[in-house]
């Protein structure tokens, strides 16, 4: 009940605050339209099929990209944990590439990879893979030594130790990396769409903004917000599945 009531209340509060700003006329109404106008603009984009198409384009890129990149990142983390020489190479690459923002990568990639899925795959992988990789490597290296002793007393070899002790213990930290990567994946896709200028929410946001169709820009912003929230909720569900004990433990300690 409260779980359902809270987001509704939050949305209501946001709408009220929005309307208060409009009535206070701090910003010209032309650039900050009433909430009803924004809803209307969104409805008309839905009626034309434009909103659904953009959400599908952006959503499929971001969601598939996030899933793939998290799996690859965790896989690389596992491989690097097993092979220290690979880890040294990957850590160096990560140190160089991690600070590069998605917007800096796209112009070069457009020429090399065209405007299709390859571009998005490249940008998302390049800027998003590091959080799950680094989280996996650092969490697997930091297993509490008493648990390792417990595993050894139970007769675990390296593989059983990884599967029964190190990986479950590392899950909360790994999934924190996954949550962060999932957020950046959406940002990377939207920035890429803005620069490539063909389709998706990023493209529409730019197009509507330059056409000064402000209510539609706001409607698109809400759509991105909803998409991002949905992806966040999906990560939370995965977290509860693999590391729910950690939340419960923390909840009890707090």
């Amino acid at each position: 009940m409260t779980a359902l009531l809270r987001p509704v209340l939050a949305l209501g509060l946001l709408a009220a605050l929005w309307q208060a700003v409009v009535w206070a006329a701090v910003v010209p109404e032309r650039y900050f339209p009433p909430i009803a106008t924004v809803v209307q603009a969104g409805m008309s984009m839905i009626a034309r099929g434009q909103m659904q198409q953009a959400l599908f384009d952006t959503g499929s890129r971001a969601i598939l990209g996030a899933i793939a990149v998290n799996l690859i990142g965790i896989g690389l983390g596992l491989a690097a944990t097993g092979a220290p020489s690979l880890r040294r190479i990957l850590d160096t690459v990560a140190a160089i590439l991690q600070p590069v923002p998605p917007a800096a990568v796209v112009p070069m990639a457009v020429f090399a990879l065209g405007l299709g899925w390859k571009l998005y795959a490249f940008v998302v992988v390049l800027v998003t893979i590091w959080p799950p990789y680094l989280a996996t490597v650092s969490a697997l290296a930091a297993t509490n030594p008493v648990l390792l002793s417990v595993g050894r007393m139970a007769g675990f070899g390296p593989v059983a130790m990884l599967w029964h002790i190190r990986l479950p213990a590392a899950m909360p930290e790994i999934l924190a990396g996954v949550r962060y990567a999932t957020t950046i994946a959406l940002i990377a896709v939207i920035v890429s769409e803005m620069i490539t200028g063909r389709d998706g929410i990023g493209f529409l946001l730019f197009q509507k903004a330059f056409a000064i169709r402000i209510p539609e820009v706001f409607a698109l912003m809400f759509a991105v917000g909803l998409l991002g929230s949905a992806m966040g909720l999906a990560v939370s569900a995965v977290y509860r599945g693999f590391a729910g004990w950690h939340l419960a433990q923390r909840g009890r300690a707090a």
Binding site: V146, L147, S149, V150, G155, P168, A169, A243, H246
Partner: peptide, 21 residues
Amino acid sequence: TDPPRGVSVVFQDYSRSLLPW
């Protein structure tokens, strides 16, 4: 050389020696 069968340990810090999951 390795933990032999037939030996068990009860560790000092129970909060760290039990698997919380």
